[in-house]
Design a protein around this nucleic acid. Structure first.
Lengths: 392, 392
DNA sequence: ATACTTTGTTTAATGAATAAACTAAATAGG
DNA sequence: CCTATTTAGTTTATTCATTAAACAAAGTAT
């Protein structure tokens, strides 16, 4: 059983000090002591250790505030690096970040046939390349994080992923065996939620829901600053909330699922029915966006409708979680200009007044990087072993 | 800021020891040491303190297992008492429990006009009476917990409650001023969830959703063993999930809310339309249950439909939370025999196979007491100040 | 009767946080 | 320019947790 002892106390306080330096650095020992309530002596001891650990450096003297000049400390973001991978349906985006989540290298490849061989080969070569490009550092590449579409079990086994030929593949095991670097796989909505929580729009939100609207809709749930994954790791399938009880059958087995009305697939399906696109063989989001920019009435009306359906689902999420913040991510986010108003008017209409203005709704601030950055953040947090991110 | 120090360590370990005695008592010091990993010395120290605190007693010698006989310890459930109150729409049920949640006294009164005066007077007299009846004990009555229908803010202010004339009343403040006993008010779904989690069917579930199906539908969310209340304390309004996007307007502002189809109100409304009840002026649940028992076809068909609608909402909950356990409580629970099968067949139909048999679905095991017992458990936990229950 | 086991306490050691005293180095004000 | 004051950071001694080891108490097994 997890009991309390002195090492626990030290761990807690060391985390607090490191966190403080990360968030507020450059900062002096004295300031940390004032801000945290920890004794000056304790702070000094922790800082010494962190400097030995190469996680913190001294910057030099800062401004005096009427007495001896403080020694400023900063988080050594170059103590190690992490790889974050966005495993998309037709692309793989891989980033190398420093320990602050700053992107230092970036590579991507398109996927053509989604076969296991193609994907694995692309992953291997991307990872190998980023490892080679990673600057010399005390800890090297500290982890590989992957955000994948589909259902991933807590051991890193991909239980089910539509479109990709990776069902029942234990990606974590395979990559750890090959690269000997701690690896984490999770659903892209979960990694996206983490990314936004740690580095994006959700920095100050302890309870946030990240809504990944792509081909389907998935949600990443951050509760009390921690990722919630449920009993068997498959929570957050809110794309499959029924919003039409006798609606169309969904591939998940349910009927009238939200994502049938509000996702990228829904958008493309409905666009196909428009007069304007009747001669277009395969419609893309680019087509739709360019028409929307041109002011194509039918496309605007369609986006309005899709926005409204997004709003209906968001009302459900708010009624369930009463979150501090809602973040819309993935590919639907590019239509922000056209869907945000209908979403907001649906919220106004349908939300009980007790929610008032409490909910903060926004579009992903990390854009196409939220998934890859979240995956990277995940492994960084694991490396730093501070309680910034825990999976419930 | 909350930092680590020795008192924290002690608090953690003392909690562990007390919890162990609560759960496994009678138990010896040696056994606690083995089970928890705490050193024998530490356990002895904590036990001495707990005995001084009157929270633990020595029972006498136990069975030898090949050496010196152990001294068995047990949790002194009579060290104090707690009052738990189920504030219903047309009744108030108040229980006095010992520290183990065992009911030692019970009183209830019907409500006739739901006026603030009637309710406050009834509450006062119930509380006063239970305090008088509480046996002599080291700590006396350690808290008053109240589960109320409606929306309660974190400070105990009732923001909104349908049917009761208590809107904007700060019940907590009023009762604390009068009785000088720590008081907690929460939504009845939250207290119900706590009751089932601590003393009922959900004892072993760390992630559970308690679905209170009464006049409306509310949900109490326990995540990682802790009650989740959301950013402003109004999470869990899953009765207002839209299941028909263009459905009837609900009083909450939304459309096609789940509770319009699956609650007690829905049952009564639909029952009114049945040929059999056309001459009954005011139909009650008793009427319906007695007809169901007699095998009235129309009533059975109606209950089947209501069950199916309950199933639809439960699928939504499972897709969202992937919980260890789902517990159906409040008045709809009495129809278990007629609604459980339709619910289960809807789950079979609509749930993705990845949920398999992972979800444990059951009806409240505390029956009409789950709300009152949860309210009592809430204040007991606060009193014991062990981390058994924390509100996120 | 003797060896062994199990329970629980006493004793001494370890390691964490911290208050107080101290050193170092600045500013401020005459 | 000099002294008092302020601020930063370290050294020292104390307090208070857990714990390992030795020990005492009280049983069982043979």
């Amino acid at each position: 059983m997890k009991t309390g002892d002195l090492t626990l106390v030290k761990q807690i306080n060391k985390s607090i000090v490191l966190n403080e330096i990360e968030k507020k650095g450059p900062i002096s020992r004295a300031q940390i002591s004032k801000d945290t309530g920890l004794n000056k002596t304790t702070v000094s001891t922790m800082v010494s250790e962190l400097i030995e650990d190469k996680l913190v450096n001294e910057l030099g003297q800062g401004q005096s505030s009427g007495g001896r000049k403080p020694v400023m400390l900063y988080f050594n973001t170059h103590a190690g690096y992490a790889i974050g991978i966005d495993l998309g349906v037709n692309y793989i985006l891989a980033v190398l970040t420093d320990l602050s989540g700053e992107i230092v290298e970036e590579e991507s490849v398109p996927l053509s046939d989604q076969s296991a061989e193609e994907i694995m080969q692309a992953l291997r070569s991307l990872i190998r390349s980023l490892i080679e490009k990673s600057p010399d550092s005390p800890y090297g590449v500290v982890g590989i994080g992957i955000g994948a579409p589909g259902i991933v079990d807590p051991e890193g086994l991909i239980l089910f992923t539509p479109y990709l030929d990776l069902n029942q593949v234990n990606l974590k095991q395979i990559l750890e065996d090959e690269f000997n670097i701690p690896t984490l796989i999770d659903n892209e909505a979960n990694t996206g939620a983490l990314g936004e929580h740690l580095y994006g729009a959700g920095k100050n939100a302890m309870n946030l829901i990240y809504v990944s609207v792509g081909i389907g809709i998935g949600t990443g749930i951050i509760i009390n600053g921690q990722l919630y994954k449920g009993a068997t790791g498959i929570s957050g399938e809110m794309g499959h909330l029924t919003i039409e009880v006798n609606g169309r059958k969904c591939s998940c087995g349910n009927r009238g699922c939200w994502e049938l009305y509000a996702s990228e697939s829904a958008l493309l399906t409905e666009a196909k029915k428009l007069e304007y696109f009747k001669d277009t063989s395969s419609i893309t989001l680019d087509h739709i966006e360019s028409e929307a920019k041109k002011g194509n009435k039918d496309v605007l009306r369609l986006l309005h409708t899709i926005g409204e359906y997004n709003g209906v689902g968001l009302v459900n999420i708010i009624n369930t979680f009463n979150p501090d913040m809602l973040i819309i991510g993935n590919r639907m986010a590019r239509f922000e200009n056209w869907i945000m108003n209908p979403i907001k008017s649906v919220l106004d209409d349908r939300l009980s007044p007790f929610h008032g203005n409490a909910v903060n709704l926004t579009v992903s601030s990390l854009g196409k990087y939220s998934n890859a950055l979240g995956a990277s953040a995940f492994v960084i947090s694991k490396f730093l072993d501070i309680n910034r991110v825990k999976v419930i």
